[in-house]
Amino acid sequence: MSLNLTQIDRVETITKEDFIKNYFKPQKPLVIERFIEDWPAYKKWSLDYMKEVAGDKIVPLYDDRPVDYKDGFNEPHAKMKMSEYVDLLQREPTKFRIFLWNILKEVPVLQKDFSYPDFGLRLMKGLPMLFFGGRDSYTFMHYDIDLANIFHFHFEGKKKCILFDQKQNEHLYKIPHSLITREDIDFNNPNFKKWPALKNAEGYLAELEHGNVLYMPEGYWHYMRYITPGFSMSLRAIARKPQNLSKAIYNVFIMRSLDNIMRRLRGQKWIDWKNEQAIIKTNKRLEKK
């Protein structure tokens, strides 16, 4: 048995009007296959090119270890020169990923390789972020703290993406006061005996290749798995729905602060309690049904 996933719509290209009408307004994900072929990045961007232009930069690395109470918010697990990291990616599988790397700040020359596309949404130009990963590395299922509309541009290799909307929260073993699900769920090959509520979740699936763009609507959960070594860039537009905007403000200014305070006060007991609550609450809802 596998997750109940629908293939995400795919188009070669799309007009701003059709995107707004058919995908943004109904908040439906989309893969655009050939939208950025006029960007210099389409021909230039590869792991070798990143090694060439950013080889001396020290990059933050993350792996798939569970959250520890001593970890700060988005605190890296290791650091490495970009040249060494690319060598590692090309040499062997590795769990290390680059997560939320701001290219505007670190490698300004890369700004010349892309433009901000007009999807009919106002993109936040200070926040283009790069994400790198080795074969079989993955991100935990999570949604972004600001519940933004995300445009995810993939370069080199292949990447598997599983998405769920916020309506699926009750089936996903969501961690309270957090942006993640249980970290011991393997969304690539889920154990339904251990996680029975997942059988009721309805989501989306896509595989990205070089030059593809994935649109993820506001607050969508996403799990990303690198089938081969590669990297992606995300551009984002602020949440438009009032309930999502208010939730984003709550997450940034209240939830994150509360979580940090409780980690300091209760340590690992706080993390363990949250993990237990994810199972207790999900199973209670499952039993009612």
Rank of each mutant, 00 (worst) to 15 (best):
Gln7Val: 10
Ile8Val: 13
Arg10Val: 12
Pro26Tyr: 09
Gln27His: 11
Leu30Val: 02
Trp39His: 08
Ser46Gln: 05
Ser46Arg: 10
Leu47Trp: 01
Asp48Trp: 04
Tyr62His: 09
Tyr62Cys: 02
Arg65Gly: 02
Pro66Cys: 10
Pro76His: 06
His77Val: 09
Ala78Ser: 15
Lys79Asn: 04
Ser83Cys: 08
Ser83Gly: 01
Glu84Phe: 04
Tyr85Val: 08
Tyr85Asn: 01
Gln90Lys: 09
Arg97Lys: 14
Asn102Ile: 12
Asn102Gly: 10
Leu110Glu: 01
Phe114Thr: 04
Phe114Tyr: 14
Phe114Trp: 07
Tyr116Ser: 04
Gly120Asp: 07
Lys125Ile: 11
Lys125Met: 05
Leu127Cys: 06
Pro128Asp: 03
Met129Leu: 12
Met129Asn: 08
Phe131Val: 07
Phe140Cys: 10
Leu147Lys: 14
Phe151Asp: 03
His154Arg: 08
Gly157Cys: 10
Lys159Val: 03
Leu163Cys: 15
Asp165Gln: 05
Asn169Ser: 09
Tyr173Arg: 12
His177Leu: 14
Ile180Ala: 11
Asp184Ala: 15
Ile185Glu: 01
Ile185Lys: 10
Phe187Ala: 06
Phe187Thr: 03
Asn189Leu: 14
Pro196Asp: 12
Leu198Val: 07
Lys199Trp: 14
Asn200Val: 12
Gly203Ile: 02
Glu207Thr: 12
Asn212Gln: 13
Tyr215Val: 04
Gly219Arg: 03
Tyr226Leu: 06
Ser232Val: 05
Ser234Gln: 03
Gln243Leu: 11
Leu245Tyr: 06
Leu265Asn: 05
Lys269Asn: 07
Trp270Asp: 04
Trp273Cys: 07
Asn275Leu: 09
Ile279Gln: 11
Arg285Lys: 13
Leu286Gly: 08
